[in-house]
């Protein structure tokens, strides 16, 4: 099921694009600011902290969708 006889990649491998989605966190100018603050924590800090579970979910989804191809 992993590859077709011609050696072409299965469409499910497109899920792997999710792995580069967290590169969005490199767009520093967008979040380098103090507001809106969350329980006293400036935006810059809680925004990046919030990305941690998002990154984990990206890897998790790719794992579940392509498990048998790894």
């Amino acid at each position: 099921m992993s590859t077709s006889p011609a050696g072409r990649v299965t469409p499910r491998l497109w899920w792997r694009l999710l792995l580069i989605f967290p590169l969005v966190t490199l767009l520093t100018p967008w979040y380098a600011r103090a507001t809106p603050a969350l329980v006293g924590v400036p935006f810059f800090y809680w925004y990046l902290m919030a990305w941690v579970p998002v990154s984990a979910v990206c890897s998790g989804v790719v794992y579940l969708k392509t498990r048998d191809l790894i």
């Binding site: 792995l19 967290p22 966190t25 990046l48 902290m49 990154s55």
Partner: peptide, 10 residues
């Protein structure tokens, strides 16, 4: 922070 956020998927 962004370092570890992008590192694991890579």
């Amino acid at each position: 922070m962004p370092y570890t956020i992008i590192a694991y998927p890579l």
